[in-house]
């Protein structure tokens, strides 16, 4: 994991620095060339790239860096460090992500089970269509429409922003809906495959009731595809909700990420990329662990 993060930080660093323009281009004009030079010198942007990277890592230049968990100062919000900003906005993104994850699971899994139990009947086809619809109507379509009717016309829920529970409902639904269809399809495949496997036939032959078969024997295995998908899903939800955060004006890391690229806020972009990568790696590890708990046939050396 550490080497991967190092490589990710290196690629991110090089990519960001290879973009034209610098973080101080949009400073108030007229800024004299001297001021800009001084600013650059303060943040060591005048050094060669390899030296800047080593300084960022914290192995050269005497200041603390990535190896100490310090992501450096933000070049745009100069009173804040990147760590500060992440500490402030990551919980917001994580709360939104976690709630959407629950929403997706609580809608997707029952729908998937229903489809698998009605396999081949019209209930299955209808459920499949609904599931498909849920990830074919993009966030950017469903969110404005919900805002228009639920919030603007009927005044049921607030239009945007984040803080009170009622403000969390619409973003959660919009973000979760996209994934609930995928979860439903995975659940359907998992359960209908499991229900056709031999140990289920054996259990049935021994006289176990259908509900015991479903909940005691089949469900554990049937949910594995959902579990393995939930790692990347959670990482997407926690960090990748750029669009939903943008629509509902939620102060999460997605907004900061997009803005940091526009502002050429190099340290911020690399810091957020690292947070994203670390989350993805940790979640995938957790998924692997829960895999071996659910399916005893899977063992890791």
């Amino acid at each position: 994991m550490i080497p991967v993060l190092l490589i990710v930080s290196f690629i991110g660093f090089v990519l960001i620095h290879s973009m034209p323009g610098g973080p101080f281009d949009s400073e108030r004009k007229p800024a004299s060339a001297e001021i800009e030079r001084n600013l650059k010198a303060k943040f060591h942007l005048d050094e060669p790239l390899w030296k800047q990277y080593l300084r960022y890592l914290g192995v050269a230049g005497g200041s603390s860096g990535l190896v100490n968990g310090d992501l450096g100062p933000s070049l745009k919000y100069r009173n804040h460090t990147v760590n500060d900003i992440i500490r402030q906005c990551l919980p917001v993104s994580m709360a939104l992500g976690a709630m959407s994850f629950c929403f997706a699971m609580f809608t997707g899994i029952p729908l998937g089970c229903y489809m698998a139990l009605r396999r081949g009947e019209w209930g299955d086809h209808l459920g499949g269509f609904i599931a498909m619809l849920s990830f074919c109507i993009p966030n950017i379509v469903i969110a404005p429409l919900l805002i228009l009717w639920v919030a603007v016309k009927w005044h049921l829920l607030p239009v945007a922003l984040w803080g009170s529970p009622s403000q969390m409902i619409l973003p959660t639904i919009v973000l979760g809906l996209y994934f609930s269809g995928r979860i439903a399809r995975l659940m359907r495949e998992g359960l209908s495959t499991t229900l056709h496997s031999e140990f289920v036939t054996t259990a049935r032959a021994k006289g176990a009731s259908e509900s015991a078969i479903l909940w005691k024997h089949a469900f554990r295995l049937a949910i594995l595809p959902v579990v393995s998908y939930s790692g990347p899903l959670l990482a997407d939800l926690l960090t990748g909700s750029f669009v939903v955060e943008n629509i509902f004006q939620i102060p999460g890391i997605g907004v900061f990420f997009i803005n940091s690229i526009f502002n050429r806020d190099h340290t911020m972009t690399v810091g957020l990329v690292l947070v994203y990568a670390a989350l993805l790696l940790i979640l995938n590890m957790l998924v692997d662990l829960s895999y071996s708990l659910l399916d005893r046939r899977v063992r890791y050396e």
Partner: peptide
């Protein structure tokens, strides 16, 4: 490929666009 999976792909699109487009 594993490492690229861990990077948010949006950053590549933006960098590619802004680096060469002009």
């Amino acid at each position: 490929v594993d490492i690229l999976y861990a990077l948010p792909s949006i950053i590549f699109v933006i960098v590619l666009k802004s680096a060469f487009e002009k």
